[in-house]
Amino acid sequence: MNFPKFLVASVAFYAIVQVLSMLGIFNGYMMIIINKSLIYVILAVSLNLINGITGQFSLGHMGFAAVGAYVSGTITTLFFKLRAPREFSLDALPAELVFFCAIVVGGLVAAFIGVLIGFPSLRLKGDYLAIVTLGFGEIIKSVINGIDYVGGPRGLLGIAPFSNFTVIFIFAFLTIVIIRNVIESSHGRAMLAIRENELAADLAGVDSTRYKVTGFAMGAFFAGIAGGLLAHLIQMAHPTQYGFLASAMVLILVYAGGMGSLTGSIIAAFLLTFLTEALRLGVDWVHEITKLPIGTEWTMVIYALLLILIMLFKPDGLMGMREAKILQLGRKHA
C-alpha cells in the first residue's frame, strides 16, 4: 500500500471530524454514528480477510466479537473493582493502559478460540464451513447466556466508557494497515492462491491449512478488538448483540462492499451505517410533514429494499475487487 498517502488521508479524516466535532457541527449523535461506522470497518475488514482474501466462508464473525467484548469488559470492570481497596496499589497504572491491554487481550483470546475452531473446521468447504462457523458463533452466544458470572441474559453491565472517537479511530487505522500489509506479504499471496484454487495452491507447495488457520485467527483477533471497543462504547455487552443476525449484517458489509476489497468494506461500513440513520431521520421527517401513517417502523423495510437494489445494480459489490489507489498493492508486486 501507499502508506504515506494513506496516513495523510487518515489523519486528514481524523482532523476534519475532530474539528467539526469541536465546532459543534457534529453533535454527539453524529459522533456515535461515526464511532459505530469505524467499529463496523474493523469487523468488515477482518471478515474480508477470512471470506474475501482467503476465500473461506465464516458466518459466525460476531461470536469472536462477543469473546472480545466479554473478556475485555470483564478485565476492565474487575480492575476497577479491585482498585478501590487500599491494599491494591494498582492506582499507579493509568486507566487507559489497562483499557488498551484489556482490548488486546480480548482480541488474543478471540484469536485463540479462532485457532481452536479453525483447525478442525477449516477442512470443510464452502457452505459446510459457513454453517459450522455459524454453529460456533451460536455456541459462544449460548454459553455466555448460560454463565451467570458475566450476567447471563442480563448482560455484562457497568463497563467503563473508554471507547471514544480517538481510540476507535486508532484501532480502525491499525486494523486496515496491518491487514493490508498481511495481504501484501507472502502470507497474503498464499491466501489469495488458496482463494483462487486451493488444490492448485497445495500442489504449488502452499501449506493451505496453516494459512487458512492464520487468516481465521487474524480475522478473529480483530473481531475481538471490535467487540471490546463496542462494549466500552455502549458500556455493556449482551449475548443478543452477537447472534447470527448480527453476523449476517457484517457479512452484508463485506459483499455489498466487494469481496476482497478493503476499500469496499470501508465504504460499505460507512455507507450502510449512515444510511440507517439517514432513513431514520428521513422517515420521521416525511411523517412529520405529510402526517401519513408511515412511522419509524418502515425504516428497515426501505433499508432492505435498498440493499437488494444495491446488489442488483452492483452484483460484485460497490467496489468489485478493486481497491482505492492508496490501498492498492505496492508496485513491486504488480
Binding site: G155, L233, I234, Q235, H238, T240
Partner: peptide, 8 residues
Amino acid sequence: GDPTEGAT
C-alpha cells in the same frame, strides 16, 4: 430491542 441501537 438491541442495546447498540438503544445507545444510538
